[in-house]
């Protein structure tokens, strides 16, 4: 879902760069929940894993591939603000070092995969936490949050493309949402698999969203 340069027009990429910069400033300013001493190395490992996993494109359907994004996983492990910083770190390194995602589109990519994916996934995850009475709520919450994070950020990409005049929204929206509805299932499976693994070996690392509770 990394947007290359050329897809977005100046007003769109520059607005999104400003928006992402503002969120970055808030995340770094200390308004974000403080990261505990125990969570400092976890943030490094989570970012490293997300970068590595994003390299692995899996074939999904009809000659199309998709890879893990990790926004929901990062938010569950460390809370939404740290998750934003993790996604931004991964995207900046991918853009500057590996030429993955355009330089002018970097703010847009951070907005889509940092703000939209983390925000929407976190919202759905917490909705599950509130509404569900079963103690296994986090399994359903993390899977559906991961799915939503992919599908909603794909929809936002479609809106950005149409605002830029690259393609009509009525074409881009169903196409982007359609293919990412499948990629989102992969996101859900991997997110849940990683959480189940951590649950088995280090359950104390999983506060299941409690990490960012006040």
């Amino acid at each position: 879902m990394h947007i290359p340069d050329g897809f977005l027009d100046t007003k769109t990429w520059s607005s999104l760069a400003v928006a992402s910069g503002a969120v970055m400033a808030v995340a770094l300013s200390g308004k974000a929940k403080r990261i505990s001493e125990e969570q400092v190395p976890l943030m490094g490992v989570a970012a490293a894993f997300i970068f590595a996993a994003q390299m692995i494109n899996l074939p999904v359907a009809g000659g199309t591939s998709g890879h893990f994004m990790g926004a929901m996983l990062a938010a569950i492990l460390l809370g939404p603000w740290a998750a934003f910083l993790i996604m931004a770190t991964v995207l900046i390194v991918q853009c500057l070092v590996f030429q993955d995602g355009g330089l002018l589109a970097l703010g847009a990519n951070i907005f889509n995969m940092g703000v939209v994916a983390v925000g929407s996934g976190w919202l759905v995850y917490n909705l599950a936490k509130r509404l569900m009475t079963t103690e296994k709520w986090w399994r359903i919450g993390s899977f559906s949050g991961a799915w939503i994070s992919i599908v909603l950020s794909a929809a936002v990409v479609a809106v950005e493309l149409s605002l830029s005049g690259a393609v009509a929204l009525r074409q881009a929206l169903p196409a982007m949402v359609g293919v990412h509805a499948i990629i989102g299932l992969v996101e859900g499976v991997i997110t849940l698999a990683v959480l189940e693994f951590i649950y088995k070996v280090r359950p104390d690392l999983l506060t299941f969203g409690g990490a960012a509770d006040e």
């Binding site: 990394h2 390299m55 199309t64 998709g66 990409v157 990629i183």
Partner: peptide, 8 residues
């Protein structure tokens, strides 16, 4: 990794 184009 799959060389196929990604969703976008």
């Amino acid at each position: 990794a799959s060389p196929w184009p990604d969703g976008l």
